[in-house]
Design a protein around this nucleic acid. Structure first.
Length: 433
RNA sequence: GCGGGAUUCGUAUAACGGUUAAUAUAUCAGUUUUCCAAACUGAGGACGGGAGUUCGACUCUCCCAUCCCGCACCA
């Protein structure tokens, strides 16, 4: 089986209404992508599955939805302002970067010692700046959040005050984040506006390892539910030198994308770095008071961080297959049923027989009321419709034929096997469930 | 941000310094069709944007935008 190429994926997404280039009609805008009717359905299904798995089905998780615009102090305390908005020079030899105003000898690289390696200082604004209120001065500057995590940390105390949960517990959030990437690349893989699904899981400092390992398992389970093949998912233990300075352990979950093996999501042990920063920045105590009367302490944090667009891309990569039905080649998206944008398509066997069309419409209406994600399709002939539905990953096609008019049975055709089954209309909903 | 390559109907491709820009597929309308892209008829649909060279530019040159490949970046 040949692997799908990026071009094939991009082309299918465009042709079938999953993903379009952002602002395409005006020549596009680098690093932005628009989701069409099927794309948004797929995206929402992934978001829903994630929320169900990690929030609704657990009793140790709390959801939040923080504002995208936050007090700029958040980004000062977190270190984002210092790291991302200064003019930097880059050594053309060793590629280290330095604050242009902090460098001692502007002709010599302090790391590799070479001379005349610096070009003009450049502004590395990875955060999108904006002005709040009518005046546009230094005081009104704020930022579009470059990560959702801070929206969780800043609400940690609120959640504890409202619910006083036992440790360990987690706070989950889904939402957009913005990064002014120097070079957005690889379809939706690296874009300037993207959606994160993040959890900050708060634990006792001596229990982080246990929690970390449990999260590794839970993540694998979720990736399986997304339909990602095990052979394409790889854990990468991030080495000491490559980890963020505050992290004691990080495991990247990588996936074999059409562009190569790249990070799909990250699992990081962040110690008490973030809550301590907020203590310093806000002056408010972030200590957790154990109910058994033990000494208060600042909890440590395990952070599983998912990128929605990368999940979409991984799901499509895994699902995309080319196989043969009756000697004819076809393209099929073998999406898990709960992720499929269209759950079931309904067709009359022939579209020029009014009695079949009427019956098909009736069945369509019933299923639509039950499942929502139902499509009525009478284009071309029946074989053509099956192929179209295969290409967008519809797991079931229901066809109304002349027998239906006699005995109220329909055929249900399975996407993956192309096998058909004749069943009663009244048991259709159960069958599809 | 650097280097290279590209940009033509929805998609995939073609051609040409000069007639109405072609083909496949998809789309729409119709005929036909009793289960896996059948056939027929008809219709709509494109030279990324802007300058320049030229009698004439989709074609040549430059600028811009976007995409792809490589590098760098990825807190």
């Amino acid at each position: 089986m040949s692997e799908v190429t990026l071009d094939e994926l991009v082309s299918l997404c465009k042709r079938r209404g999953f993903i379009y280039q952002g602002s395409e009609i005006y020549g596009g805008l680098a690093g932005t992508w628009d989701y069409g009717p099927l794309g948004v359905a797929l995206k929402r299904n992934i978001l829903d599955l994630w929320w169900r798995t990690f929030v609704d089905e657990r009793d140790d998780m709390y959801g939040v939805d923080a504002a995208i615009l936050m007090n700029p102090k958040v980004w000062q305390a977190s270190g984002h302002v210092d790291t991302f908005t200064d003019p930097l020079v880059e050594c053309s030899n060793c590629h280290n970067r330095f604050r242009a105003d902090k460098i001692e000898d502007e002709n010599r690289c302090p790391v590799c010692g070479r001379e005349n390696v610096f070009g003009e200082p450049r502004q590395f604004n990875l955060m999108f700046k904006t002005n709040i209120g009518p005046t546009q001065d230094e005081k009104s500057i704020s930022y579009l959040r470059p990560e959702t995590a801070q929206g969780i940390f800043t609400n940690y105390k609120n959640v504890v005050d409202s619910f006083y949960p036992d440790l360990p517990f987690g706070i989950a959030q889904q939402g957009k984040a913005f990064r002014n990437e120097i070079s957005p690349r690889d379809f939706v893989f690296r874009s300037r506006e993207f959606e994160q699904m993040e959890i900050e899981y708060f634990v006792r400092p001596d229990e982080w390892e246990k929690a970390f390992e449990q999260w590794q398992k839970d993540i694998h389970k979720f990736l399986k539910a997304l339909g990602l093949s095990d052979s394409k998912v790889h854990e990468l233990e991030v080495s000491d030198g490559d980890r963020a300075h505050y992290s004691k352990r990080t495991v990247d979950f990588e996936f074999d994308f059409p562009i190569g093996r790249e990070e799909l999501l990250g699992l990081a042990y962040r110690t008490d770095f973030d809550l301590k920063n907020i203590e310093k920045g806000s002056g408010k105590g972030m200590e957790y008071r154990p109910k058994d009367g033990g000494e208060p302490f600042v909890p440590h944090v395990i952070e599983p961080s998912f990128g929605l667009e990368r999940a979409v891309m991984a799901v499509l990569t895994s699902a995309y297959q080319e196989d043969e039905i009756g000697g004819e080649k076809r393209t099929v998206l073998k999406l898990p049923t709960e992720l499929a944008p269209v759950r079931v398509a309904v067709s009359p066997l022939l579209k020029n027989k009014p009695e079949l069309v009427a019956k098909a419409r009736e069945v369509y209406k019933t299923l639509k009321a039950e499942f929502g994600r139902v499509m009525y399709d009478d284009n071309g002939n029946i074989g053509k419709r099956y192929r179209r539905q295969d290409e967008i990953g519809t797991p079931y096609c229901v066809t109304i034929d002349f027998d239906t008019l006699e005995d109220d049975t329909v055929t249900v055709r399975n996407r993956d096997t192309a096998k058909q089954e004749r069943i009663k209309i009244e048991s259709l909903a159960d069958k599809i469930k």
